[in-house]
């Protein structure tokens, strides 16, 4: 398949997925009932005229597809409209999205710093006690509920040792525990990927050639093997991005981190559906975009898969 038509096909697929997800979320949220009634549910003496005025103001008396079109237009232009209870949505989202991405990237860095060296060690010492320890640890890391790990960290580092703030976002030190919590979970899976792909790469012919040339072990591993196994790791990270976002939601709540997850949970509690709809749609856009980007990068990095 020529490159251009492959790219085109993937972009169309991504567009289709986004339309499906946003349509689903918008439609599902319409099923929750009349937003006008929800907004006024705590006020006394509500007249039908009040409700009609609010519907008019929110544009709810227009057909669903028009409202959906408006919502999509808003997503594209950044005009995100108003929430029920907290004013304009755009500033809420931009703050929360920044906090979430900061946390996601820091967690990723934490996880790579642990998983790459350990994975290389396990692969180059295959079958040793250290290798098996790494495997057991990575399995154990997959078995934690991530939020529980977060609570345990709070117990140790905030309650007992009083080294770190238990929650909120008051400075760089606030980032440590949430990032470690998510980083540990990510590390467990990344470790396995690094180990297996390194084992694959280390047994391939170009590594034998590199060794035959008399290159040092360090040069073979870091210059040749690691570079090649990183392609698999990047793809895998792309695929994992969705569950990373899902995990973030819960961990954010534990640490009261002012990100998209906390925003969504607060929106659910207040039944502020415009916020929820926007948060979920933006996260879906991010996930689709990352997956698309990974697919395209992968194709550029590894010419063999173009003809998939």
């Amino acid at each position: 398949m020529p490159i251009l038509s492959f790219i085109l096909k993937r972009v169309i697929q991504a567009g289709f997925v986004l339309v499906a997800v946003t349509l689903f979320v918008s439609f599902a949220i319409r099923l929750t009932g009349d937003p006008a009634v929800m907004m006024l549910r705590e006020s006394a003496n509500v007249t039908p005229e009040d409700l009609a005025r609010i519907r008019e103001g929110l544009g709810l008396n227009r057909p669903f597809l028009v409202q959906y079109g408006d919502f999509i237009g808003g997503l594209l232009t950044g005009e995100l409209g108003n929430s029920f209870f907290r004013g304009a949505i755009a500033p809420l989202i931009s703050g929360a999205l920044g906090a979430t991405l900061l946390l996601a990237l820091t967690s990723l860095a934490v996880s790579l710093l642990i998983s790459v060296p350990l994975g290389i060690y396990a692969a180059t010492h295959r079958g040793s006690f250290g290798d098996q320890l790494v495997r057991v640890l990575s399995l154990a890391g997959l078995s934690f509920p991530n939020f529980w790990l977060g609570i345990m960290l709070v117990l140790i580092f905030s309650v007992t040792l009083r080294w770190l703030p238990p929650s909120g976002f008051t400075g760089p030190q606030s980032l440590i525990m949430p990032a470690v919590t998510i980083g540990v979970i990510l590390t467990s899976t990344n470790l396995r990927i690094v180990r297996t792909t390194m084992l694959d790469v280390l047994s391939s012919q170009f590594i034998m050639v590199a060794r035959a040339k008399g290159l040092s072990q360090t040069a073979v591993i870091y210059k040749h093997a690691l570079r090649n196994s990183s392609i698999a790791l990047v793809t895998y990270l792309g695929l994992q991005f969705g569950s990373l976002m899902g995990g973030l939601v819960v961990v954010e709540l534990v640490f009261n981190w002012p990100g998209m997850g906390t925003l969504a949970i607060e929106a659910i509690a207040q039944r502020d559906y415009p916020i929820l709809q926007t948060v979920i749609s933006i996260l879906a856009v991010l996930i689709v975009a990352v997956n698309l980007l990974v697919d395209l990068t992968y194709m550029l990095l590894d010419p063999r898969i173009r003809l998939e």
């Binding site: 997925v17 099923l31 969705g242 569950s243 899902g246 929820l276 996260l283 996930i287």
Partner: peptide, 22 residues
Amino acid sequence: MRFADIQLALPFILLAMTVIAI
């Protein structure tokens, strides 16, 4: 295959949050 694409873009926790909110 299309359903699988959609599912990949909507992590379970987010799907669950939307649906259970409703």
